[in-house]
């Protein structure tokens, strides 16, 4: 069994990174409302993802209001892709064979 990337495997961080994988960029507010995390939790997870080099941060001002934007890095996208493949392998180990998700499309 391969070791999963624990930075990504944490459910909240997987949600965040998966969301960012479909986007060019998203701000803190969007991630907050979509993931349903608290500000503190989200901030902490973003910090970990940034330290792992999986997201990049861009801080700007809209008028006088600070605006923080996050983008998944190529390293983050590669790590996420690898993680998805590993998860698929794990699912296939489940009793009954294919545990592959067939979620809504």
């Amino acid at each position: 069994m391969k070791d999963l990337d624990r930075v990504i495997h944490e459910p909240a961080r997987l949600r965040i990174l998966t969301l960012l994988a479909g986007l060019e960029a998203a701000d803190f507010m969007f991630l907050l409302t979509t993931t349903g995390l608290t500000k503190g939790n989200l901030s902490s997870h973003m910090d970990k993802l940034e330290k792992a080099g999986y997201v990049s941060v861009r801080k700007t001002f809209v008028g006088r209001v600070p605006h923080t934007e996050y983008t998944i890095t190529p390293e983050g996208a590669a790590a996420l892709d690898r993680h998805w493949r590993e998860l698929d392998e794990i699912r296939n180990l489940r009793p009954g064979g294919e545990g592959n998700a067939s979620g809504a499309s």
């Binding site: 997987l14 949600r15 998966t18 969301l19 960012l20 994988a21 479909g22 986007l23 998805w84 998860l87 545990g99 592959n100 998700a101 067939s102 979620g103 809504a104 499309s105």
Partner: peptide, 13 residues
């Protein structure tokens, strides 16, 4: 039901 995480990325897009 189980969700393929890649579906999230598609709907985000």
């Amino acid at each position: 039901h189980p969700v393929d995480p890649r579906t999230v990325a598609r709907w985000a897009a």
